[in-house]
Design a protein around this nucleic acid. Structure first.
Lengths: 119, 119
DNA sequence: TCGATACTTTAGTTTAAACTAAAATGACGT
DNA sequence: ACGTCATTTTAGTTTAAACTAAAGTATCGA
């Protein structure tokens, strides 16, 4: 599980981002048009989701005049499919996971397999 | 995108749960053994993750004496793979998404495509 | 160069997720 | 019946994500 695949999994885990992804799946659409298609959320929020999707490689942007046209890059889902398929036989997965976790560790302060307090 | 697929995507989006999933991918393991393999998190936290994974259908539990043995059910990843593959041509996906979003909507209070304030 | 348009970024708030600590549950041995 | 063991659940806290409002950036037309 590399960093890129993690970003893709994170991206598609959000219903909101899947909604956006669906809109630009088979056509190019300007950021504003995407926001208009989602009346319950602000333009700013949509823009942030687009950035998340772009960082994951799930969409690409093309600037034309003042517009930025977004479109899905379905190829990006390929690697993830493979990750899901190969989880079980990837010998390095565990090690990669550990490196990945190191950045978000929190760690317990006291209790760890605590013996029940005699009351 | 049905509820079940959403649960699976949510479940595998977490590095911690992928770590657990990896541990029980090719063997049965008791909840305690899983917790022991993850020294930086409490038993309670592991148990909650196991529940999330079980709700998503990614693991199944088997009770033996006082132990509960968990094991991954790789078949559960099949539907998700298909979802990722078929996103683009699933005519119902958009409608399903809308139903799915209705439960987590927040909605803007004022601003929506605001005309810039004349200063 | 000024103002409008199209979008992005920042700052701050609210909501949800992850986690800990401790109490609760349930099965077993005695 | 009681205590212990393995695990789950609850309650409360911390961290991260989603969102809004507003400011910032860049491009275009007049």
């Amino acid at each position: 599980m590399d960093v890129a695949s993690h970003a893709v999994l994170q991206a598609v885990a959000s219903p909101r981002r899947r909604e956006i992804l669906r809109l630009v799946w088979d056509r190019e659409l300007a950021a504003g048009a995407i926001a208009d298609a989602m009346p319950d959320v602000t333009f700013g929020a949509v823009s942030l989701h687009l950035r998340t999707l772009a960082d994951a490689g799930l969409v690409t942007a093309r600037a034309v005049h003042r517009n930025r046209f977004y479109r899905a890059t379905p190829e990006a889902l390929g690697p993830v499919r493979k990750v899901l398929e190969r989880m079980w036989d990837d010998a390095l997965w565990k090690l990669k996971l550990e490196a990945e976790l190191e950045q978000t560790r929190r760690g317990p302060q006291q209790q760890k397999r605590r013996t029940r307090r005699t009351r």
